[in-house]
């Protein structure tokens, strides 16, 4: 379904020398699979997702979706962004129907289809509100409805729940899993939260930073729907944490200078599980 081969991406920087955000990335995502990409902030996750979305171009390598080379954004791959990107001048209903309008579907039908998705994310009562009247979690739900109404083959999610509070996030995990189980969409999900990645995905690709590479892959073969108490999930979580400890030290070193040492000041469990969210 998604096939990324030897992809590299370098950004221009002030001062001349290019910054290699992604270096020789390769992976595949099968049809109907739920795959997460996990890595610390700044490791190139969004860049990678944008390449698959067609919002950016790779310098080297090849990105294919359904056997075709990606070179522009398209309605078969919809991105759910971290800051929702809903249009503030449109109501919830109009936002969700926006993509259908571009397909020149008649108003009545597109509103009907949009309403169906809005109800599916439990926002039936809020259809005529404007985005700023909604909470963060509701906005993300609208963004998901707006993506699903296009019936894309692939859903690309760039840290969609990162800005939400813990309760809302857990709720949306359940809802997203249910949506995925019902629709069988292929989902590429980006996060810096280990638990989120493990709870949701079939596979977790762990990225290393500077330059961004895929460091290791973990398969999560726990039963669906996932249970928070599943010991398999916890086991994989701690495996990933070990893999990432080295990465974290690298990030911390770059931010605090070379004298920083992970052994001397062990990070708390929660700091590691959020990949240095707080540092």
């Amino acid at each position: 379904m998604i096939r990324v081969e030897g992809v590299s991406k370098t950004f221009e920087q002030r001062g001349g020398a290019g910054y290699t955000a992604l270096d020789d990335i390769a992976f595949e995502v099968g049809k109907g699979e739920f795959v997460s990409i996990l890595g610390p902030s700044g490791c190139g996750k969004s860049t990678l997702l944008n390449l698959v979305a067609g919002l950016e171009r790779a310098d080297k390598g090849r990105v294919e979706v359904s056997g075709k080379k990606v070179n522009a954004p398209g309605p078969d791959r919809i991105v759910v962004f971290q800051d929702h990107a809903l249009y503030p001048w449109l109501t919830v209903l109009e936002n969700v129907a926006f993509g259908l309008k571009q397909k020149r579907i008649k108003k009545e039908e597109r509103h009907e289809r949009a309403m169906e998705q809005i109800r599916a994310v439990h926002l039936g009562k809020f259809a005529d509100r404007y985005p700023h009247e909604l909470s963060g979690g509701m906005k993300q739900r609208v963004a998901i409805a707006r993506a699903l109404v296009m019936d894309p083959e692939i859903l690309l999610m760039d840290e969609p729940f990162a800005a939400l509070d813990e309760q809302t996030r857990l709720l949306l995990h359940k809802e997203l899993e249910q949506i995925w189980l019902n629709t069988g969409k292929t989902i590429l999900f980006i996060t810096h939260n280990i638990r989120e990645a493990v709870t949701l995905s079939d596979r977790v690709l762990v990225m290393s930073t500077r330059p961004g590479r895929i460091k290791k892959e973990f398969r999560v073969q726990a039963a669906r729907p996932r249970e928070a108490g599943d010991s398999l999930l916890h086991h994989i979580e701690s495996q990933i944490m070990n893999t990432l400890a080295a990465e974290l030290a690298k990030v911390a070193k770059e931010e605090y200078g070379d004298d920083y040492n992970l052994e001397k000041s062990p990070l708390s469990h929660s700091a590691v599980s959020n990949l240095g969210d707080g540092i």
Binding site: F81, Y87, F98
Partner: peptide
Amino acid sequence: IPPIYLKSAQMFGT
């Protein structure tokens, strides 16, 4: 205009 508005517009086929 936030660039993300323009990006997502293109994704939705404008």
